[in-house]
Write a protein that binds this DNA or RNA. Structure first.
Lengths: 328, 328
DNA sequence: AAATGTTGCGGAACCGGTTCCGCAACACAA
DNA sequence: TTGTGTTGCGGAACCGGTTCCGCAACATTT
């Protein structure tokens, strides 16, 4: 009961295997032979061996996706979007996880190339010369999501603009003593763009700002929230991600503060649970899933040689909810 | 600048390609030739073509993972565990998403077989005769996580026992008017085992129970929470998942109830954010990540022909937190 | 009717590995 | 010295496809 091969089909249909191959790939085949082959393939439900095909063509119908972590909301949603679209188009998604190690991103670029993926979608955190060198070397289309660089096709979130717009809104509402809780700068989009957007909005209104730096892990921002609760020095705490906001909320609650009465809190990212928190969390919604789908479209365009913009922005949506108070 | 092949190595080293192959696969090779080949391989940084290898061996170093959805906490964490362990052991994870369509699970079993994955880890929701037929047909080791069946190796969560233990605890605390919010029965583990465990604990203590059925989506349980809030008929709402609890909490908050003063709420699953909610959520923690790693170990054992138990249980941990009140 | 053009198809080479088989060289025992 | 066993290595076949090339059969043009 081994797998049916093109030779079997050829023998059963009484033709040469090259003819079967031509039939499969749309070459010129006579009516009569066409029917014979068709029937035999039906009966045996023959499926071509993908390794043999790839061996010859040096190509696969796979798109590699490099993600920094598998358990982040943003990554999950993006992967969903990518997968949906790729499946529709007859491609498959090959996810590789780098566990947030930059070194492994570079490794995986080479590794995916070795596996002859047709293209790579890279959910980036930081872009180094070594990344660029790898991308250059592997000769495979790469689409970068969430970060940008002049020489790599990228699909970026308008972090700066969204942060600025949200910060502006808070200023309009009269907040002047603000605390910003961000992450390290190595993550350009989250660590720098969001922070800079907010800070510009704040400074334009002459607000006083204090900054904390934490990680992407919820637990790490709890003590910061607690400290803020004790010091009681601000009317608003702006967080670089929803997870950070979650931790800050917990820390505030632990120190007996209520939101938004004692202090307001905002997040960034638009994770689904922010809506059902109590109080519901003011945040910026980023269209992760749609972005994933868009990325899939774009990488497929690159495969066909289409010329696309080096840099494409996604949109954003500000979700004003209960956790931020209107002061005036 | 094409890829270096075994022929190139053979030529450069002045030997036959069969010798190079033997060198690579640990056959008998003399000291002198060994060194020559070694050097050439170093210089060219040759890497064998995986398609050619798979074509011959009809095998890959990939383990397929079938998941119902990519954006569930349980699935993400499990995938992390799987991936970590597989990477350590030189295997790769190939994730396929079924978007919660049973039909696609079956499709993917065949599809993964076609791709010659070495083994399959299946995060199941329901097991039908057609699944079993597929598993039988493809002749590839399959490890089922989260559901069970006599003929399939499985790694199951002690849903029934955990639910029973947690329910028992609530009874000890004096709750007698209980509402259970569950999901459809087609999901055996979540829809049936959890429910049955709770109901047994409740009925043993003669508590009165009312049951609601909802979906896995947060939004769908908000109205249920709201309704419960208005009817005010129970001291405790037990939810089949943490997401459901989240929705119920929201619904209760919307109707002006506070937890746990007016009514207690518990979840199930142990998602990380349950700890930082306010009030923090009483729940059962299931070791998704560790289970993923364990599953990886088990499937690799199956590959080497080891005999392992058909059914393995994971452990669980009850997290008693603020959202459930002690009545007496 | 001869010259030319199409079309359909088979044979063979090729993709890049692995493995079987047999031979030569050498070591050792009788 | 001959016989036997071992070791190292090359040649060839094979895995299952695709593609190039050339030939035969038939249709079309002049």
């Amino acid at each position: 009961m081994r797998q049916v091969t093109i030779n079997d089909i050829a023998k059963l249909a009484g033709v040469a295997k090259s003819t079967v191959s031509r039939y499969l790939n749309g070459g010129s085949v006579g009516q009569a032979t066409r029917e014979k082959i068709e029937r035999v393939i039906q009966e045996t439900n023959y499926e071509p061996n993908q390794f043999a095909q790839s061996l010859k063509s040096k190509q696969t119908k796979m798109i590699g996706v490099i993600v920094p972590r598998l358990d982040s909301y943003a990554a999950s949603r993006t992967m969903m979007g990518i997968d949906e679209r790729l499946t529709e188009r007859g491609y498959q998604m090959l996810v590789v996880n780098t566990a947030q190690q930059t070194e492994r991103e570079i490794e995986q670029l080479y590794n995916l190339a070795k596996q002859k993926v047709a293209g790579i979608i890279w959910l980036g955190t930081t872009v180094t010369p070594r990344h660029l060198h790898a991308i250059e070397a592997i000769q495979i289309p790469v689409l970068l999501i969430g970060q940008e660089h002049a020489t790599v096709h990228s699909l970026v979130y308008p972090d700066y603009e969204a942060a600025y717009a949200l910060g502006k809104q808070f200023m309009d509402w009269g907040h002047r003593d603000v605390i910003y809780v961000g992450v390290e700068e190595y993550d350009i989009a989250v660590g720098q763009a969001r922070r800079d957007g907010f800070l510009r909005a704040f400074s334009e209104s002459g607000a006083s700002v204090k900054t904390y730096t934490t990680t992407f892990k919820i637990e790490d921002s709890i003590p910061i929230g607690a400290q803020i609760g004790h010091e009681q020095a601000a009317s608003l705490v702006v967080c670089a991600t929803d997870n950070i906001a979650l931790g800050v909320l917990k820390g505030l609650a632990n120190s007996g503060k209520t939101v938004p009465n004692d202090v307001s809190v905002s997040g960034f990212g638009g994770y689904d649970f922010t809506e059902v928190l109590h109080p519901s969390l003011t945040t910026v919604h980023l269209p992760y899933r749609r972005t994933g789908a868009k990325a899939a479209d774009m990488i497929l365009q690159l495969l066909t040689g289409d010329v696309i913009a080096m840099k494409t922005f996604t949109n954003f949506e500000i979700k004003l909810r209960e956790s931020v108070d209107i002061l005036k």
